[in-house]
Design a protein around this nucleic acid. Structure first.
Ligand SMILES: [Zn+2]
Ligand SMILES: [Zn+2]
Ligand SMILES: [Zn+2]
Ligand SMILES: [Zn+2]
Lengths: 157, 157
DNA sequence: GAGAGAGATGTTATAACATAACATTCCTTA
DNA sequence: TAAGGAATGTTATGTTATAACATCTCTCTC
């Protein structure tokens, strides 16, 4: 994911894609679920559940944790977002069309999360699983470090 | 790691290895740190911080969270244990002699965690990082599924 | 062996993350 | 329009983790 981009287009694309996917699957992208997804897509950084709760609450109406966690559960089930275990956070999924397990590269400086679906990584994990006779059900891969942009910034500072 | 083994030997080996490593590095494996490490090594399953707190507390003396979390921080820094992000748990490290990032295979049935240091997996991650210009600092790889033993048990049931 | 300083642990309180259990509302469809 | 399921609201609580400050315990120096 390029850092310089029309992010409004990202959001719009993600939401209309989600509409389409949910319609096709016969599941309901309710207003609450859609609002949560929209908030998550405000950036390409991880967002936390309680930040969502704060953002979705207003003076006259506070959204409670179960409401948001239920929406997150739905979005995770539908593969519209990913959970980042090492941050207790969530990001929108780039390629929600078909279920997949992602590899996430997370910048410790700017927080940018980029997703990739590299076959080589999956294959390497499967090879090791086969060696152990392990039956894989889910793969969690999170790489922490510095994105290219933040390395440049550091070099020029 | 074989499931059938003399686990007392595992524990003893892990502790004496930790003694030796800490002595060599000039850091202190204090009684509290050693007790926490010993508890973690009671099994090859992930153990949670609050379970450790419970186990280390007695009628007359309750161990408080910061005490245990500080010991865990020390053990993590020294590479004597690994944190499992997807479980909020901890396991002893198989090969603490030199710092490394592990790949963990976690059985959802028996809880057994096996560690591997497969080069192929590391290389595949590095290849993708290079493609993105990403500078890797840490790799988190956790594979969830069923271990060979639990698959057998399921097949024969 | 008194005193200084660093490192480790104890203590209190609270922050941050997540779910159980049950009530109510909303949607669909018969 | 009544029934039933799905979604959301509400209250309470469970679980995981850390901040801030006090005390203790070594070791080193004088
Ligand atoms: Zn964007
Ligand atoms: Zn960055
Ligand atoms: Zn063992
Ligand atoms: Zn198993």
């Amino acid at each position: 994911m390029d850092h310089e981009h029309n992010h409004d287009a990202c959001i719009e694309q993600a939401l209309s894609s989600a509409d389409e996917i949910c319609a096709r699957r016969g599941v309901r992208l309710t207003p609450m679920r859609r609002k949560v997804l929209e908030r998550i897509w405000q950036s390409h950084e991880a967002i936390k559940a309680y930040d969502l709760i704060g953002q979705l609450s207003s003076a006259d109406r506070t959204v409670k944790p179960p409401t948001v966690y239920r929406a997150l559960d739905f979005l995770l089930e539908q593969g519209l977002i990913h959970r980042i275990e090492s941050l207790n956070g969530f990001v929108g999924c780039d390629r929600p069309q078909k279920a997949h397990q992602s590899q996430l590269f997370i910048c410790r400086d700017c927080g940018h999360v980029s997703e990739c679906g590299d076959e080589g990584i999956r294959r390497a994990l499967d090879r090791e699983a086969a060696r152990q006779g392990f039956h894989t059900e889910a793969r969690i891969v999170e790489v922490r470090g510095l994105c290219a942009r933040c390395q440049d910034r550091a070099a020029h500072a």
